[in-house]
């Protein structure tokens, strides 16, 4: 697999604040990569540095053979869509897409042809001649995609492409991205794990300007997957008392207790109790026995696995 973008020790400081603190990653040709993190983690700053809109404080980037000094020349191969793109409201969608194409060096005829193709593709051909000022948020985002792709870039960079959209607009754009990622390498930032899971091959989770976890999304899922047992208890005295005692006991004798060999962690979420276990079978056996003995009223017992969401929350938790 060839590397398209290689980032090493990328750092950006604004005054005394370090927005991005030395991150390393690389993106391979043809992959769809999500830059995932909570708000304020440094996603936008990273994206803007890669897009060439912001110069880094330290670190190097190599994109498609272009390094430091002539990184700007690589811009021809980058398509960029910011979080909420603004256009010239007095232009029509078609005019803007053509303009974008011409600025990327396409001759007038080719630019017009490509612009029409892409507007068709993003479902804007009906509104191509309308002023951008009259477009809805979703239409603007789709125009943003069209103008970013007009010159067939090798890397499409998007900053929170769906965050500002309503559910319908979000669906539309996600559907488009699903198709587009087959044709080009895609890097986008998001704070929603769901979007990343739906679209991406690889994920880079960042937190406070540092990389918390990165890799193939399926591999991460398998590697960090842990069996869990979820109990739903009725809110009667006996059950509540049992749980409180049990939790106490486990935390006090965590190493000596027999249960500790197969129960790793207990979490309470309202009426539900979640056991992260090392070994499902013995934990299940043990719990069922205890529950019967103590006459705890269980309304539901479920065996499952931790989701990527749990991992994400754990990784980015402050």
């Amino acid at each position: 697999m060839t590397t398209l973008l290689e980032v090493k020790g990328l750092t950006k400081t604004f005054g005394a604040v370090q927005a991005v603190g030395g991150i390393d990653f690389s993106i391979h040709v043809g992959r769809c990569v999500a830059l995932l993190g909570p708000n304020g983690a440094g996603k936008t700053t990273t994206i803007r540095m890669i897009a060439g809109l912001l110069s880094q404080t330290a670190g190097t980037m190599r994109f498609h053979g272009f390094v430091k000094g002539d990184y700007g020349k690589g811009k021809v191969h980058i398509g960029y869509l910011p979080q909420s793109p603004s256009f010239y409201n007095w232009m029509s969608g078609l005019e803007y897409a053509v303009y974008a194409g011409r600025l990327c060096g396409l001759p007038a005829g080719t630019a017009l042809k490509r612009a029409k193709e892409l507007l068709e593709r993003v479902g804007l051909s009906g509104a191509a001649k309308r002023r951008i000022g009259s477009y809805s948020g979703g239409m603007k985002q789709r125009l943003g995609l069209a103008q970013a792709l007009v010159h067939s870039p090798k890397l499409l960079i998007m900053d929170e492409p769906v965050s500002a959209l309503d559910p319908i607009g979000r669906r539309e754009v996600l559907g488009l991205l699903q198709e587009l990622k087959e044709e080009t390498t895609v890097l986008f930032s998001t704070h929603a794990l769901h979007d990343a899971e739906e679209l991406c091959d690889d994920v880079i989770i960042i937190r406070k300007g540092q990389i918390a976890l990165q890799g193939n999304i399926a591999a991460i899922r398998n590697e960090h997957r842990k069996p869990i047992i979820e109990l739903q208890l009725e809110q009667d005295e006996v059950s509540i008392k049992w749980f409180t005692d049990y939790k106490d006991r486990l935390s006090r004798w965590s190493d000596e207790a027999q249960e500790a060999s197969f129960i790793q962690n207990i979490e309470q979420q309202g009426a539900a109790v979640r056991f992260t276990v090392r070994e499902v079978d013995s934990a299940r056996q043990h719990l069922l026995e205890v529950l019967t003995r103590e006459k705890v009223k269980v309304s539901r017992l479920e065996i499952g696995h931790t989701s990527l969401e749990d991992l994400f929350m754990k990784v980015v938790a402050p």
Binding site: L53, I78, Y80, P85, S86, L103, C104, G105, G144, Q147
Partner: peptide, 13 residues
């Protein structure tokens, strides 16, 4: 201020 400039300046110009 509107952000239109950043969409243009990111182009290879």
């Amino acid at each position: 201020n509107s952000g239109a400039a950043s969409l243009i300046l990111v182009k290879p110009i």
